[in-house]
Amino acid sequence: MARLTPYLSFTDRAREALEFYRSVLGGTVDISTFGSMPGMTDDPAEQELVMHGQLETPGGLVLMASDTPSFMTYVAPTSGVTVALTGGPEDVDGIRAAFTALSDGATDVMPFELAPWGDHYGQLVDRFGISWMFDAGTA
């Protein structure tokens, strides 16, 4: 079955972001650098940039990311794209923990709390400029 997976773009902080997300969500990070692929870049300063990185969590979440070397055009995260971490009543504590950890250095924080429609809801822009939404149903 196909999966829809967020793929985040950075200028040069993909490794740092993936490691931070791993510290929040758990799991394993796998990284391929531009330098590990022959012919991708001759610039020594770009050898360790992330060509493809992937975080897989124990719960089956997948988050991908890459850096942007000088020969590619950087596409910044847009205000119309948000990474959503959602679940049911059994996930409230885990989602709250992720929200709390991702709040470190975040801006535009809407607290994770009971919303008028009955779910626990919150949102923020993390320290890397990535917009996140958190929702845990109560029924």
Rank of each mutant, 00 (worst) to 15 (best):
G118A: 06
Y7M: 10
A139C: 04
V50R: 05
A139S: 13
D108V: 08
F128T: 06
W117P: 00
T138F: 08
E56L: 11
D30L: 04
L102M: 13
A97L: 03
A17S: 07
T5N: 12
G137R: 04
F134K: 06
T5L: 11
T57F: 03
V29R: 00
A2G: 05
L18R: 05
M40K: 06
T5W: 01
A106E: 10
I95Q: 01
A101P: 00
Q54N: 09
W117Q: 00
Q54K: 11
P116N: 08
T73Y: 03
E56T: 15
S9M: 13
M1I: 15
V24W: 12
S131Q: 15
M133N: 13
G26P: 13
M37H: 11
T11Q: 15
W132K: 01
D104G: 07
G118D: 03
Q54D: 04
T78W: 02
E46G: 08
W117S: 01
G87C: 03
F128L: 08
H52C: 02
T33P: 04
L4H: 10
G26A: 12
G88M: 07
G60V: 13
P69I: 01
Q123C: 12
Q54S: 11
S32N: 09
S70M: 05
Q123D: 10
G129A: 04
S79C: 00
R127Y: 03
V62Q: 12
V24Q: 11
D67Y: 06
R22P: 11
L55V: 01
T28R: 14
E46K: 07
Y121C: 03
F134G: 07
R96M: 04
S32L: 12
R3M: 09
L114D: 05
E19Q: 08
A14P: 06
D119E: 01
G59C: 04
Q47W: 06
M72F: 11
L8A: 09
A17C: 09
T73G: 12
G105C: 11
L25M: 14
T82Q: 11
F134C: 09
P111M: 13
D42A: 11
S66T: 13
A106H: 13
A97E: 14
V109R: 08
D42C: 02
A17D: 02
L49D: 05
L61P: 00
G59L: 05
M40R: 06
L49W: 10
F128D: 07
A136Y: 06
A84F: 02
P38R: 10
L102V: 09
G87Y: 03
G26Y: 11
T82L: 03
Y121R: 07
F99A: 01
M40C: 09
P69M: 02
T82F: 06
S79A: 08
E48V: 04
